[in-house]
């Protein structure tokens, strides 16, 4: 994919009860929004394992959007609070990994907020567009090549080595 044709690719994890339903409502209301977001339906935003987010980024997503019920409205009482907590930790970790934390976004969108869903998706696409491609798979490949043909042993700095994706991504937990 050439740079001029690059379009942001965003994976979304929506909870069944609020945000997925809001996306259905946006559809029924024929609201139009950017086609860059691909939705994965989960029962609750609390099911969003940070590993899903890292996996999506590692497989080529430029951004990840998580949608859950408003605080106090969770169908399962408090799953969304757990998500909020995990997101705080994940943002710190992303910064450490050299990934802009704004590529991952958590939004509360109620079942009636089809219009908010449209706005959030469009805004997210624009922000990711401004950040540019993340393209982790290509960076991983470059690192792999570097490992296979190391230029000089002393030039590889230890932190970079820690990041090489031949190691499985560690499971992060709340």
């Amino acid at each position: 994919m050439t740079e001029s044709r690059w379009e942001p690719r965003i994976v979304a994890f929506f909870c069944n009860w609020c945000t997925y339903t809001a996306a259905d409502l946006a559809g029924v209301s024929r609201l139009k929004y950017a086609p860059n977001v691909r939705v994965v339906r989960l029962m609750c935003s609390g099911r969003v394992d940070p590993q899903f987010i890292l996996d999506a980024l590692a497989k080529g997503a430029d951004g990840v959007l998580i949608g859950g019920c408003h605080p106090g409205d969770c169908h399962y009482a408090e799953g969304n609070y757990k998500t909020l907590r995990r997101m705080r930790m994940l943002r710190r970790m992303l910064t450490a990994l050299g990934i802009e934390p704004d590529r991952v976004r958590l939004e509360w969108i109620a079942a009636s907020e089809g219009e908010k869903l449209r706005q959030v998706v469009n805004d997210m696409v624009e922000r990711i567009r401004a950040l540019g491609p993340l393209n982790l798979p290509a960076r991983f490949d470059a690192w792999d090549r570097e490992l296979e043909h190391p230029p000089a042993p002393e030039s590889t700095s230890p932190p970079m080595e820690a990041l090489t994706p031949t190691q499985p991504l560690e499971k992060v937990h709340a």
């Binding site: 029962m43 609750c44 099911r47 937990h173």
Partner: peptide, 30 residues
């Protein structure tokens, strides 16, 4: 809801219909 599934550090909690493999496969697919 799957909140415990996402939190289990050893990955020993699993969820029918929302297994990790299923979701990873979905992510890869999209």
């Amino acid at each position: 809801c799957g909140t415990c599934v996402a939190a289990c550090p050893s990955g020993s909690i699993r969820q029918h219909l929302f297994e990790d493999e299923q979701i990873f496969a979905e992510i890869e697919g999209v």
